[in-house]
Design a protein around this nucleic acid. Structure first.
Length: 802
RNA sequence: GCGGGCAUGGCGGAAUUGGCAGACGCGCCGGAUUUAGGAUCCGGUUCCUUAUGAGUGCAGGUUCAAGUCCUGUUGCCCGUACCA
């Protein structure tokens, strides 16, 4: 067959579009399959080969399942709010709406040219009013339920982007967008109380099928720890100082306390005049605020601190008076912002004690505290009580019980995960639907007024004070309070980019609904998402956020399942030809359009899945692409090899073996070995020199998910009914996958010395007899004592001789 | 530091889970075809001092049998980071 890929690909894409063959039915007798891929951010630079790999996994699985008779939902959309578009608008003066529309159009045409089997009637765009109306709706539900709140706090602030970032967006002390250093700034910010769902998010992981490393990353991110809160007395004032510890068993080893530089007790004590060295304390506090997060966590492992003069702590278990230090190795954002320091059994406390010359008292045996802190378990010593417990688990539980009995403290739980900083001082995002009224306080915009539309503006620069461009619009800001009717001001911040993506998979289920975010019957039919595939970089952000929103919606009764995704997998990166991560600055990027133009979409699809294990990173190779081109060229030539008559038995067996392998490998995302098996089959067919029409029909259908355009064309030429993409997935004949004979390797003392061919499943005696009948093998055994004979049917014979 | 993962030819990577290491592809070598190049086709391709040879980062161990399991070790990658 002549393989004019550009003509063939255009032809079939048009036909699929026209017949809408990939559109999902909302209800059906067939089993349903909801395959979800992470929708792209439509950037101006267009699609990346990484996008194609990310979508190809479920593209293949979805196409195969459709052929197997499933009702498949495989949607796509655009996560289009966000800073890159806004920054581009600032640069070019073109409105983000127009840029977004252009970029979406570009992405859509690129996706179509690759031939993805998306349901194009369900496309979702997070920046459309009909969509963000419901994002705002969910926000208001959270506000009503006390999960959205405003607080003044130290936040991660990017001085370059002039925007507050969440913890998840400032990992490693760098801005996720521009990679500048983050500074800590006190600001009035919106939070979503995700910590309220920390336990549910943790427990929910037990019922879902996520890759183990994805689960583990989420568990670590949530960071649950069990321990105790203990109240320490003070030698001055009425206050007590509450600390959190995971090691209450070391309470007798406490020799000092440390509080975060921002700890509120300092102001209280200062107001009462209890602190004698306030100048020194203030100087230290200032020094700390100047440090960037990066300096505080990465560079300055060297401990610094100031001792409070005038106030000491009192250890409740033994009444000892101990000094209190301010030090920035204790964070206000975790626990209570204050710790009991046990230098003998905590590395940080040890370093601090060494530097400041504080006593180190061993209370757990097992290490050498002259040299280093011992953080392991062991028998308790130097502790006035409970020394009957020499097992850590017991002593901690017993200690907590004892603390509770004495009224000194109680057991508690802490999470590393922090509440989600939820506002951005930017234009291109969902407006937060809240009105600030001088008399009523914060008032939600009534539901019937949603969507609260983003007003048209021409200047997108944030203000000097870091306020949103919306703050400059008097007509937007000044409004009436929905509650009392008095003059009020609108919230001018917008939501972060992660808002729209936290529920988009629900909107695919019912994308045009104007009454609800989605119809409950349809949600019941489609949820949960059967299989979600995406990048590892999103497992501690989007994947956590969207699970949080979904759990919340479930608690409101708006969705039928607690967990949104039944299964989550991840694809590996495509690296540049130099083996490094692709980046424009390195100049090692590959444009998928070039490949589509030069060699065709089918080649691109096959190569991306053939280049390596789907879940691992693999470097791009232009030569590797050519190899896949050769493969498809040779497949196209199969049409000319069709002959009537009896099928070649070797080919027949190879076809069924390959079909079995491909069918199973696809479900395991082992696309590379599935393609390798089909290449091997093609070699077998070439050797045989002919193929029957039935055999070709099987070949074309099993290749169809990978190279659908070519397969449609071949299917049509061989007179196949309808679309190949809708044809029935062939089923292998198990009998044909079993050979009549097996070749067994014969080992003497573990070394392969020859081979014998035996009937399938031949027994041990037959096998040994065959070895002895072989002249060469028999001579190797002759005259020696046979110690042992091991026969693994159809595989190997090992004879141990002396 | 902590948590997780990986290590196989010149290269990307296979290996039904303990049973013939190197499938498949690239590259390379030789041949055919071609005025030539490209493309295509055919054959070869782990290494070597060619022999009862060696070989899956390194050193041990278990086993009839180890890329696969165990112990130690080195290097790389990812995540996270003063989390009390």
């Amino acid at each position: 067959m002549k393989y004019d890929f550009s003509a063939i690909e255009k032809k079939w894409q048009d036909k699929w579009d026209e017949a809408k063959i990939f559109n999902a039915a909302d209800h059906s007798d067939k089993p349903k399959f909801y395959g979800l891929v992470e929708f792209p951010y439509p950037s101006g630079s267009g699609m990346h080969v990484g996008h194609i790999k990310a979508y190809s996994g479920l593209e293949i699985i979805g196409r195969k399942r459709r052929m197997q008779g499933y009702n498949v939902l495989f949607p796509i959309g655009f996560d289009a709010f966000g800073l890159p578009t806004e920054n581009s608008a600032i640069k070019t003066g073109i409105h983000p709406r127009e840029l977004t529309d252009r970029n979406i159009a570009k992405f859509s045409s690129q996706l179509r040219r690759v031939g993805f089997a998306f349901d194009w009637d369900r496309v979702v765009d997070t920046t459309e009013e009909d969509y963000y109306k419901w994002t705002q709706f969910i926000f208001l539900k959270m506000f009503e339920n006390g999960l959205a709140f405003r607080d003044t706090a130290l936040v991660n602030y990017c001085p370059h982007c002039k925007v507050v970032l969440s913890n998840e967006d400032s990992q490693g002390g760098k801005c996720d967008i521009c990679h500048s250093d983050i500074v800590q700034k006190s600001k009035d910010v919106w939070y979503l109380r995700i910590t309220e769902y920390a336990d549910k998010l943790l427990q929910g992981l037990e019922e879902v099928d996520y890759l183990p490393n994805i689960k583990m990353q989420q568990v670590n991110w949530i960071g649950k720890s069990r321990g105790a809160f203990v109240n320490f007395g003070l030698t001055a004032g009425d206050e007590t100082l509450r600390i959190y510890t995971t090691r209450p068993d070391t309470l007798f080893g406490v020799t000092f306390m440390v509080i975060a530089p921002e700890h509120p007790i300092i102001e209280k004590l200062a107001a009462e005049g209890k602190i004698n060295n306030m100048d020194e304390v203030k100087a230290y506090q200032e020094e700390c605020t100047k440090k960037t997060e990066f300096e505080r966590t990465q560079l300055v492992k060297d401990k610094t601190g100031v001792c409070l003069d005038g106030v000491k702590g009192i250890n409740p278990v033994n009444g000892k008076e101990i000094p209190i230090y301010l030090a920035d190795y204790v964070m206000m954002g975790y626990g209570t912002g204050a710790i009991m320091a046990v230098p003998a059994h905590d590395e940080r406390d040890y370093d601090f004690a060494k530097k400041f010359g504080i006593d180190i008292i061993e209370v757990i045996q097992g290490g050498n505290i002259e040299e280093a802190a011992y953080t392991g378990d062991g028998p308790m010593v130097n502790s006035d009580f409970l020394n009957v417990y020499d097992n850590k688990a017991d002593s901690i539980a017993a200690m907590i019980e004892w603390l509770q009995e004495k009224g000194i403290g109680e057991g508690g739980v802490q999470f590393k995960m922090k509440d989600w900083a939820f506002n951005r001082q930017r234009y291109w995002g969902e407006p937060i639907p809240i009105v600030h009224c001088p008399t009523c306080g914060m008032v939600p915009v009534p539901y019937e007024e949603l969507p609260l539309r983003l007003p048209p503006v021409t200047e997108f620069e944030p203000g000097q004070g870091g306020e949103s461009p919306l703050a400059k619009l008097d007509y937007f800001v000044n409004c009436k309070c929905p509650k009392c009717g008095g003059a009020a001001k609108r919230e001018t911040d917008t939501m972060p980019q992660w808002a729209g993506s936290s529920w988009y998979f629900l909107r695919y289920i019912d994308p045009h609904n104007s009454e609800a975010l989605a119809d409950m019957d349809k949600l019941r039919y489609w949820l949960p998402v059967d299989w979600y595939n995406g990048g590892m970089e999103h497992v501690t952000r989007h994947l956590i956020y969207s699970r949080f929103w979904h759990h919340f919606l479930y608690d409101l009764g708006l969705v039928p399942t607690a967990e949104p995704y039944a299964k989550r997998t991840a694809q590996g990166l495509i690296l540049g030809p130099d083996g490094e991560k692709m980046s424009k600055s390195r100049g090692n990027t590959v444009d998928p359009n070039d490949v589509v133009n030069e060699l065709g979409a089918d080649v691109l699809r096959v190569y991306i899945l053939f280049m390596g294990d789907y879940g691992s990173a693999a470097p791009w190779s232009d030569n590797g692409v050519k190899g896949c081109k050769r493969f498809l060229d040779r497949v196209a030539d199969l049409s000319g090899m069709v002959k009537g008559g009896e099928p070649n038995p070797k080919v027949e067996s190879a076809i069924h073996k390959t079909l079995k392998k491909v069918t199973m490998d696809i479900e395991d995302m082992k696309f590379n070995t599935a393609i390798a098996a089909m290449m091997g089959l093609l070699n077998d067919i070439s050797d045989a020199g002919s193929i029957t029409k039935d055999q070709l029909s099987i070949f074309v259908r099993m290749l169809c998910p990978f190279a659908p355009h070519l397969c449609e064309e071949m299917w049509e030429q061989m007179g196949g009914k309808g679309f190949c993409s809708l044809a029935e997935w062939p089923v292998w004949d198990e009998a044909k996958t079993i050979d009549a004979t097996a070749e067994l390797a014969v080992q003497i003392n573990g070394k392969v010395r020859g081979k014998v061919i035996l009937p399938m499943n031949a027994d041990k005696d037959t096998a040994i007899a065959a070895v002895k009948a072989d002249e060469k093998l028999a001579s190797l055994i002759e005259g020696k004592t046979v110690v042992k004979e091991i026969v693994i049917p159809n595989k190997i014979i090992n004879i141990v001789v002396k």
